[in-house]
Design a protein around this nucleic acid. Sequence first.
DNA 1: ATTGAGATTGAGACTAAATCTCAATAAATT
DNA 2: AATTTATTGAGATTTAGTCTCAATCTCAAT
Lengths: 153, 153
Amino acid sequence: MKTEQDIFLAYLKSRGLNLTAERSKILQTVFSFHRHFDLDDLYDEIRRHKARVSRATIYRTIPLLMESGLIREVFRCMDRPHYEHIYGHDHHDHMICLGCGKVLEFKDERIEKLQNEVCAEFGFESVEHRLGIRGYCRECREGQVKRRGAAGT
Amino acid sequence: MKTEQDIFLAYLKSRGLNLTAERSKILQTVFSFHRHFDLDDLYDEIRRHKARVSRATIYRTIPLLMESGLIREVFRCMDRPHYEHIYGHDHHDHMICLGCGKVLEFKDERIEKLQNEVCAEFGFESVEHRLGIRGYCRECREGQVKRRGAAGT
DNA sequence: ATTGAGATTGAGACTAAATCTCAATAAATT
DNA sequence: AATTTATTGAGATTTAGTCTCAATCTCAAT
Ligand SMILES: [Zn+2]
Ligand SMILES: [Zn+2]
Ligand SMILES: [Zn+2]
Ligand SMILES: [Zn+2]
């Protein structure tokens, strides 16, 4: 079982790039999250650990992490892309509550299978997909709503 | 059968707003498209008809059209949101070719139904959803690829 | 250990999308 | 007609993201 480091390192090597301290710190921080994050979450968390990585470097590193298959963009919220690490986690899709901003994850094998069928019909080779359902969660429908802002898909 | 104008007008009235010449022109142009469009497509098409509406007004009107349920954002391409009118059209989802940028539309009732089931399980009330599959279309997989740039979901 | 080629970084300049401000205009209301 | 409120366009402003470049680091070959 390879670690995320192994994978990132292999990817970087394959491109003639190095695993620097900054990239390593970003990688480590990404995998320390147990939730979806945006660039500023990363930046803040790194500083909170008294490490110092510039925003420019984070902007540069995110595409590398995506290309190496370690993270993916999941949705856009407050006009910013949000990411999640995917290595070691099952694929899943998202429901985003327009009331409280909560993000629910779900996976339905039947939907996944049907997507493959549709792609086959069209002769389309799927590389990646994203299903985002926006609406209102149980708590927001029933009880009192604490508005935290709407989220985009 | 209401026209898009009726709907937009009703929405505007409900908010104490007026259907001005500019808003009317934007509405008309939106429904003259038979493809997905972004803000500049709108701007250019309006000017091509020798009408004059500022970008600021278009930026202001798009949210109104979305809130009134006439258009929706469908994906992001070249870092810009793209829209489509939805009034009078069946709901559908999209496949986006990473090779040529082509956008294919599909609808699978079974997938739609399963989404409803999943929402019910979670007690989640769906308002809207978006399924985007990115990959390679038949032509790009077989023949020669004419790269036109990648598209985002 | 030294060296040189190439990779990397951070700071700040730059770009471009989107929002905001505001004075002038238009529409609705009285 | 007068008053109020909505609307517009131009340009200023904000902000996410990219680009530039000089200084620094990495690594592989001596
Ligand atoms: Zn909620
Ligand atoms: Zn997730
Ligand atoms: Zn294609
Ligand atoms: Zn469509």
